[in-house]
C-alpha cells in the first residue's frame, strides 16, 4: 500500500463524514504545506493563517476530490491559489506558478527554513526541537538508528531495509516502531508545554 493509497483511505473516511480523519491529513501535511507557503509569504503568522485557510478550503472541496491526483498534489494547488489570493488582497504581487515551482524543485537544507523574520521565540523553539531529535537519534541503539534513517531519510521500503540489514521484515517493522517511540518520547514533554506553544 503506497503513501498515496493511505491518503486516499483517509480521504474516503472524511467523505463518509469522519472529520477526525481530516485532522490526520492536516497533521501529516501541515509542515510540508507551511514550508511551501513560506516561499511565497515571509511572515510566519500569515503562513499559518493561509495554511489554515487552505486546509478549510480543501475540506469544503473534498466531496469533489475523486483521487485522480495524489491528495498532496491537490492540496498543493489549493495552497498556492490561497496564497496568491492572500497576496493580491494585501496589495502584494503574487509570484507566478513557475517561480514557485522552480523554487520547489530545489533541495532545501534545513537551515534555510530558519528565516530572518522568524521571531526569536520561534527560532529557539525550532532549535530546541532539532536538538532534541538529534540527541534522541544519537541515543538510539545502532540497529534502531540505521532502520529509522533508512526508512525516514532514505525512503527505503521494509523489504529493502531487511535486505540491507540482513534481518527479517518483522524485525525491521519492530525496530522502526521502537525508534519512533524513543524519539517521540523525548518530544512529548515539549508538546505539552502550553496550548499556544504546541505544533
Amino acid at each position: 500500500m503506497s503513501d498515496r493509497e493511505i491518503d486516499q483511505q483517509l480521504v474516503e473516511r472524511v467523505q463518509r463524514g469522519d472529520k477526525q480523519a481530516f485532522g490526520l491529513l492536516v497533521a501529516k501535511y501541515q509542515r510540508k504545506l507551511s514550508r511551501l507557503l513560506s516561499r511565497m509569504i515571509r511572515d510566519p503568522a500569515e503562513v499559518e493563517d493561509v495554511a489554515q485557510e487552505a486546509f478549510i478550503k480543501a475540506y469544503r472541496a473534498l466531496p469533489s476530490f475523486r483521487g485522480d491526483s495524489a491528495f498532496y498534489t491537490w492540496l498543493y494547488r489549493i495552497g498556492i491559489n490561497t496564497a496568491k489570493n492572500h497576496l493580491v488582497s494585501q496589495g502584494r504581487r503574487a509570484p507566478t506558478t513557475t517561480e514557485v515551482e522552480a523554487e520547489d524543485a530545489e533541495q532545501y537544507e534545513s537551515g534555510e527554513l530558519l528565516r530572518d523574520n522568524d521571531t526569536p521565540e520561534r527560532l529557539l523553539q525550532t532549535r530546541q526541537i532539532g536538538n532534541t531529535v538529534n540527541e534522541a537519534v544519537e541515543a538510539l541503539p545502532e540497529e534502531l538508528r540505521t532502520a529509522i534513517v533508512l526508512r525516514e531519510i532514505e525512503g527505503l521500503s521494509y523489504d529493502e531495509i531487511a535486505s540491507v540489514m540482513g534481518c527479517p521484515i518483522g524485525t525491521v517493522r519492530s525496530r522502526i516502531f521502537r525508534a519512533r517511540e524513543a524519539i517521540a518520547e523525548r518530544l512529548r514533554p515539549m508538546l505539552d508545554v502550553a496550548p499556544d506553544k504546541r505544533w
Binding site: R35, P44, V47, E48, A51, T126, V133, W199
Partner: peptide, 15 residues
C-alpha cells in the same frame, strides 16, 4: 518525528 528527521521542523503552532 519523520518530518523532523528530514529537517522539516515545526515553525509555529500546531495547525
Amino acid at each position: 518525528v519523520g518530518d523532523c528527521l528530514r529537517g522539516d521542523f515545526p515553525r509555529g503552532n500546531d495547525l
